[in-house]
Design a protein around this nucleic acid. Structure first.
Lengths: 136, 136
DNA sequence: CGGTATCCCGGCCGATACTG
DNA sequence: CAGTATCGGCCGGGATACCG
């Protein structure tokens, strides 16, 4: 299993070059960067436009400096976010989505908005589940 | 901040009832169930059709019994996956997506396939980043 | 087969302090 | 403002054993 082909024999996507269902495939890590707890929210926040570090921190409610910094590094490394630092004093750094990042985030936001939209149904399901379980 | 409205003042989605950018909003947890490390792969695997526990375990390369069990419980609680147990011996249990689960998974797969598709570009970006960083 | 229970370790992650 | 450094808890998650 090298890095340019990670075929998983047991999935229907068996002959795709980069298969997330295969444990060793680098696409799985990238997917986790994108869908991860902070990665998804960071990308989502940046979709509206470029933001500075602390603006981002306020938008993504609950993220710590450390995790935001780490998240931004991963996303920048993946080529999804572009970092632009201006050597002024005080320093000003803007983060914005790359074209690839925008394409990824469009799909991500489609999922996010759908989940937000169906939350009433989900909450109902959760209550039914909990009641049925609590009865046991 | 109750459970039927979680407005985040600082995002553009400020007046949406269920806002993932708000820390306390239940939609964030549900999104994590869907996009999480094992949740996303489990949903993706089930999109092709219903599967039994150990079939699922083999498809989702690297998942442990414990995590698969836990993941399936979360997804079932959210109303995304339906569990059907047949009281035979040996027992047979099938998992399948609910209609809501299918809708969610369609959007999820759109993202997954896009990431898989663009992996060559991502790998290139990563190498550039690593080279530039290694040079420092 | 289809799980649950228990143990336990590594690393995710928050808090705090510090730097340019 | 925009981070990095360091410490520590806690919990995700793997390994193993066990049950119906």
């Amino acid at each position: 299993m090298d890095e340019t082909s990670c075929t998983a024999e047991l999935t229907a996507d068996a002959d795709l070059p980069f298969n997330v269902f295969s444990k060793a495939c680098p696409s799985r890590r990238t997917l986790e960067d994108v869908t991860g707890r902070w990665g998804s929210l960071t990308l989502g926040a940046l979709y509206e436009g470029s933001l500075r570090f602390n603006e981002l921190r306020r938008r993504v409610d609950g993220v710590s400096e450390k995790m935001l910094s780490q998240t931004l590094h991963s996303l920048e490394r993946d080529g999804l976010v572009h970092r632009e630092a201006q050597p002024t004093n005080p320093p000003r750094v803007d983060y914005e989505l790359s074209p690839l990042g925008r394409d990824v985030t469009e799909r991500l936001l489609s999922l996010i908005h759908f989940v937000e939209d169906r939350m009433p149904t989900v909450l109902e399901a959760q209550q039914s589940y909990d009641v049925a379980r609590g009865a046991l």
